[in-house]
Amino acid sequence: MGRTLVFNIFRHSPADPDSTPRMQRFELEESDGMTLFIALNLIRDEYDPRLSFDFVCRAGVCGSCAMVINGRPGLACRTLTEQLPGEITLLPLPNFEHIADLSVNTGRWMRDLSERLETWAHLDHEPDVDAIERRLEPELAEQIYELDRCIECGCCVAACGTAHMREDFIGAVGINKIARFRADPRDARSEAEYYRVIGDDDGVFGCMTLLGCQDVCPKQLSLQTQIAFIRRKMARAGCCSLK
């Protein structure tokens, strides 16, 4: 303890015609249990009330606060400063529309993705809400939830080599979502229908298997496994449809 932390923070507000991109330096006394959530709010309260960043839950579950922390995408709210060196560089996530300073528009990106991949259970029929629910094997319910734990924070997209080259690439977040719905018997889609939404170079076949996504996912989702699995299934679906 007793460190003075040096923060180098990216500053720019594209909507303000007077703003130019720059790095700004702040110094802050470190305290016990300090997270980047606490540090950034102190900087805003004490030094620069215009500093923009996004926190909502500040508990690691909502996915709002992803940023590049000393070169690595991660959730700022649950990053303890004691785990970082004394000099901390913070940049907004790449590959998303920049709003201001550390704030980016992951929301619009994720909505576009959901519309493209149709990330909802395609129902046979609307449920009878009075009737006893459909049975599901307990293990299968747990498996679906495991794939459902993605928080759409955007870290995997920021760390993705393909996404840097290919603007419309769906990223590991997209491939994992297809894995999630494909595993769910309540989604009535056929293999061909999944193929239609991800069976191309902007989908699962665009992935170069660099696997930065796997390294940075804050929920430790099995992205590597899901990408390999869905690629195999989609390759088969593609071949079958050619016959």
């Binding site: 459909r134 049975r135 307990p138």
Partner: peptide
């Protein structure tokens, strides 16, 4: 109960009884 069942049909992976 209707709300839980509707959400179940829509895709919430409620934990199940073994």
């Amino acid at each position: 109960p209707k709300a839980v069942r509707e959400l179940d049909a829509w895709g919430v992976a409620w934990n199940r009884v073994s």
